[in-house]
Design a protein around this nucleic acid. Structure first.
Lengths: 283, 283
DNA sequence: GCAAAAGTGTTCACATTACACCCATGA
DNA sequence: TCATGGGTGTAATGTGAACACTTTTGC
């Protein structure tokens, strides 16, 4: 059936390209040239501001089509000599330089909706990285600006703010409804490019769901952390105030996840807090 | 740096193909032609045999390179006119025909290791489908056989058997270690093609982890199910005997997930069992 | 010593477990 | 009426929430 669609000179060129691998293509059933979409690696890079005690997300201002001059999650193309997670790590290095040696990247999901990328087919292989620091940012290729956006929330969404700019996670909770509306919404100034508000929503939900059994998000607190800072992170994703999470209970409920590794030294009044690490080692 | 690698006529053709989209490529930094890998959709199709009370998985015998004449998870190529989840559904329809109207597909993960596919770069976008029935199978394109394999387990692996054939999930628990060994193992007769034993391991772990909060796997029991059959599914993934899961406690612990919808009629001795459904509706 | 920050302990409510008991059906 | 499969109830144990209390620091 697909053979009935128009075939351009580019399709033919692509076919020639394909055949160098001695792969036999069956046009009628298995393929057409358009089946090789762009492979975008999208990386949600998280960090924690120890001054403001806020969770932060890295956003970039695009300089190229599509969505030039608009804010988006950092993206790159998958290269032939790297796995997708290596590609996500490379993206981190491009934005923050190489001063950080040790950080954790994990897969979020893959987004394949046909209209997610205007003009051409593109898949987003999305990853999340938790940085143990909040370094200065370097916009790098394809972007004119890169900034940290502090996370907050309202009843139905998470919000990410830097100065006047504020972006929210998708308001829809249903995948199909979100993408059905996506075309019409593409020009709203307070929205992230592409389907990034949806990707961001999926990310926040995932992080929240993993808090009680695999809180890799705490890696953004550094190699060790105090219970108070951990509670701040939990509170941010649970849409609570820190003080709504009782420290005594928090410690008891998560003792299987945390292991004590030392004590803080501080110049402020009050008993110094103990330091903890994740008891499991994220691969 | 990438510009220093050899450039073939095919690279040039691919570039011409690319430029029709008016996308400006920066060879030195962002791309090379090999960055458009094959997009394989891998679908793990699950079902339940009500006669043997076993969880079953669909495997196919490949007829084409690579791994011709070997068993593998069913795969297809992503087409230009479908999302990846639609592609996974199409794969189901090709294997089982169209007699089943209502079934659920969800994303598992995306596998991108450079050596996962011999000879060329290929990404696997993996999905899972839970069939409410165990229909006759149709091998379809690229395969000579398609069969149900019954799931069992040993201490460290899940096993899938049909007659003499038995395949196991990956023995490694570490991603990097698995892929480091993959080349050497490719020819063992009792192994699935590609990295499918790893994908299958990831799938089983995912299903197990979701049993207590989103047991979509129960959709393979049909539109409604008895507590006993649900316990059988749980037991299979928890590596227990059905009787190790107390019925009374099972009901109490999962009452937020199940809702009573009727009663079974049976010709056997014993009180008829009640029928339940998932209380939430998987999208 | 006092205030501030953090860690500890106690109580109560509720959930989970183990296991005994009761109910509905076919032969 | 008995064997069989399935549902219900209960006491003991374990877990989480609320909140009071103790410890350690800076000033």
């Amino acid at each position: 059936m697909l053979i009935s669609t128009q075939i351009s000179i580019f399709d033919v060129l692509q076919l020639i390209y394909h055949t160098r691998k001695k792969w036999t293509y069956n046009l009628a059933t298995e393929t057409s040239v358009n089946e090789r979409p762009y492979i975008n690696i999208t990386n949600l890079i998280w960090s924690f501001d120890h001054d403001s005690n806020c969770v932060n997300l890295l956003l970039v201002k695009r300089s190229e089509w599509p969505f030039e001059n608009r804010w988006a999650l950092p993206e790159t193309f998958l290269r032939s000599n790297e796995d997708a997670d290596e590609s996500a790590l490379r993206l981190v290095k491009e934005k923050i330089g190489l001063e950080l040696a040790d950080f954790h990247t994990e897969q979020l999901a893959t987004f394949t909706h046909q209209t997610r990328y205007p003009g051409s087919r593109s898949l987003s292989l999305s990853y999340m990285t938790f940085l143990p620091d909040m370094p200065k940012l370097d916009p790098g290729y394809g972007t004119t600006d890169a900034r940290w956006f502090a996370m907050s929330f309202n009843e139905s969404q998470y919000l990410f703010s830097n100065g006047d700019q504020q972006f929210a996670t998708a308001a829809d909770t249903n995948h199909d409804e979100y993408y059905a509306k996506l075309d019409a919404n593409q020009l709203a100034d307070n929205q992230l490019a592409f389907d990034h508000s949806w990707i961001l929503k999926v990310a926040c939900d995932r992080i929240k769901n993993k808090l009680d059994y695999q809180p890799n998000i705490l890696l953004m607190l550094g190699t060790s952390f105090t219970l108070k800072s951990a509670r701040r992170v939990y509170a941010a994703f649970l849409k609570k105030d820190v003080n709504q999470i009782d420290n005594s209970n928090f410690k008891k409920n998560h003792k299987h996840l945390f292991v004590e590794v030392g004590i803080t030294t501080s110049n402020r009044p009050g008993r110094p807090a103990r330091k903890y690490q994740l008891a499991y080692l994220p691969a």
